[in-house]
Amino acid sequence: MDIHNEVAATDSSNPPAEVLDLQVIQHVLWFYGDPVWGLEPGHFTVALLTAFVNADLGNFALLASSFPAQGYWVRMLRHHPEGMQIAVDAAQRLAARS
């Protein structure tokens, strides 16, 4: 199964608990241009997200082993047809809990 089909096949309505970090989601949303829920990260996080985007599958996996939430959301926004909305929905749910 290629990465696109793998992400599309995930239960996106229920992301794993370990990736539910409001700030991470907002940073990834900013990186992908969301003007409402996106939150501009610092230079390191921008470089990290850029590294994820430019990585081949092996290096993506290495990065994701240390930064699982960032890897999950970058993959979701890049490869799931409704990734942006899934991330916004997750951010809204997390913000409502705060």
Results as ranks from 00 to 15, higher is better:
H79Y: 15
D34L: 01
A91T: 07
N59K: 03
A87N: 07
G71F: 02
T10C: 07
L20K: 13
V46I: 14
P41I: 04
D21R: 13
P68H: 12
Q70P: 00
W73E: 03
V19K: 14
A47L: 06
G38V: 06
I25S: 02
V28H: 13
V36N: 10
A95M: 14
N14A: 06
M76D: 01
H79L: 13
D56H: 03
N59C: 10
R97P: 00
L77R: 01
G71C: 11
L39E: 09
R97M: 14
G71W: 11
L39K: 12
R75K: 15
P41L: 13
E6W: 10
M1T: 04
E82T: 11
M76A: 10
D34S: 01
H43Q: 10
W73I: 07
H43T: 14
V28Q: 03
V24M: 00
L94I: 13
R93L: 09
M84A: 14
D11T: 07
R93C: 00
L77H: 01
L29Y: 02
L29N: 07
L29H: 06
D56G: 15
F31I: 10
L20Q: 13
V7R: 09
S98H: 11
E40M: 12
H43K: 15
L39S: 13
N59V: 00
A55V: 10
I25V: 15
I86T: 12
V24L: 02
S98F: 07
E18R: 06
N54H: 05
F44T: 10
L94F: 05
D2P: 15
M1S: 02
V7P: 02
Q23E: 10
H27R: 06
A69E: 02
A95S: 11
V88M: 12
A90S: 14
L77C: 01
R97T: 08
H43G: 00
P15Y: 11
H27I: 02
A64R: 15
L49C: 11
G42H: 01
D34Y: 07
A55D: 02
V36Q: 14
L62N: 10
S98D: 15
A55C: 06
P68N: 05
H79V: 00
S66I: 00
L49D: 08
S13Y: 04
H80I: 05
V46S: 06
V46G: 02
Q26T: 08
I3A: 08
